[in-house]
Design a binder for these strands. Structure first.
Length: 222
DNA sequence: TTCGGATCGATTATACAAAC
DNA sequence: GTTTGTATAATCGATCCGAA
């Protein structure tokens, strides 16, 4: 290396460094674009699977829902191996929606001071008797209980309904709210005091049971 | 071992919505 | 209208890792 070439080399070196310096933001931006593109693809998949409002999903939600979705896929695959008929899940989903409607009716009745409590109890009893139940539940638990006018129906869980759903079905997540899972909040219509059942010990603690009772993770609406 | 590209983590800037 | 909180993008230094 000669004294005359040295400055050129230094210049080339610094140019190369400068070039890298200039290129780095672009590379970094490309990288972020790749990440965001993949997140968008995931979002489309998740929105389709959970039928959620696309505009209300942030990146962390997308990742969370993706994890849930993959867990669902895995569990569904396992259920398929156990020869669970496909109609069962649809039946369970219907039951879950029915129960949620019952709770809504009950909440409405609570706000109607002018309503005769006997009439309200009769209505809820009727709904309870008409509760769609799987044949397996019927065999196991017998007929649904009858409410007395003085009882608070919402504290009662429909028989067989607590385990009526697979713990991580995408449709159930969708029907529960159109909401997402996060720790700390409470379900849409039941307070812990109003629903003193023990937490579901048989399944995934991160999934809420159909009554809206949260275990560790809770669906929050938005 | 050195170099260069890729990636990560921390920090800052910006935009936006909700609460007041 | 202002403040506050949150999400996202951008930037930058540090680190990792494969190729020469």
């Amino acid at each position: 290396m000669t004294a005359t070439t040295c400055p050129n080399n230094v210049e080339k070196l610094s140019n190369a460094k400068d070039e890298r310096k200039l290129r780095k933001p672009l590379i970094e931006r490309k990288r972020r674009e790749r990440i965001n593109n993949c997140l968008d693809q995931l979002k489309e998949t998740i929105v389709g699977a959970f039928r959620l409002d696309q505009s209300k999903l942030e990146k962390a939600d997308i990742l969370e829902m993706t994890v849930k979705h993959l867990q669902n896929v895995q569990s569904n695959r396992l259920m398929g191996e156990c020869n669970v008929p496909l109609g069962v899940e649809a039946q369970q989903r219907y039951s879950a929606g029915y129960i949620q409607c019952m709770h809504e009716v009950h909440n409405l009745l609570l706000t109607c001071d002018w309503m005769d409590k006997t009439v309200g109890a009769r209505l809820l009893n009727h709904l309870l008797k008409s509760l769609p139940r799987s044949s397996e539940d019927s065999r196991r638990t017998g007929p649904p209980p009858t409410l007395q006018p003085s009882q608070t129906p919402v504290t009662q869980t429909a028989p067989g309904a607590g385990d009526a759903l697979p713990h991580s079905s995408p449709d159930r997540i969708c029907s529960d709210r159109g909401c997402k899972v996060l720790g700390g909040d409470r379900g849409p219509f039941l307070s812990p005091a109003a629903n003193p059942q023990p937490p579901d010990s048989s399944g995934d603690p991160s999934v809420m049971d159909h009554t809206g009772t949260a275990s560790s993770d809770v669906w929050r609406p938005w």
